[in-house]
């Protein structure tokens, strides 16, 4: 099995905003695929998933997604579904991660309670 393992990252959605996030090497979460921790073996994949499991208070639905690596070793998505998740709707280039100001969806410090 291990031989067939493709480089993978852990992706999920942020509990509060719903935004796509990736696990980084510190076990925390980043919105940038470039900063995602990459698992090169099935065991590394399991380790990342094990770190994600208890983080229900931060994220929803963590899963392993295949990536390929560019010449600099940076991950990029192989499946078109994941490609859309790194960008946003193909019909609205002004929205989502691909937009000029993706950080506008960060929770406002002042937004208060639920």
């Amino acid at each position: 099995m291990a031989r067939n393992f493709k480089p993978s990252i852990v992706s999920a959605n942020d509990l509060h905003i719903g935004d796509v996030v990736y696990m980084n090497s510190g076990g925390g979460w980043t919105r940038k695929l470039a900063e995602a921790a990459i698992a090169h073996t099935a065991e590394e994949g399991e380790t990342l998933m094990a770190r994600a499991a208890p983080q229900q208070a931060k994220v929803v639905g963590p899963y392993l997604a295949d990536v390929a690596l560019d010449d600099d070793g940076r991950p990029f998505p192989t499946h078109f579904r994941e490609r859309f998740r790194t960008r946003g709707p193909s019909t609205r280039p002004d929205l989502g991660k691909q937009s000029a100001n993706p950080e506008r969806r960060e929770p406002l410090a002042a937004s208060g309670g639920i």
């Binding site: 969806r105 929770p107 639920i114």
Partner: peptide, 10 residues
């Protein structure tokens, strides 16, 4: 609405 935040839904 495609872009709501959990914390705004209430």
């Amino acid at each position: 609405y495609n872009w709501t935040r959990l914390t705004d839904v209430g």
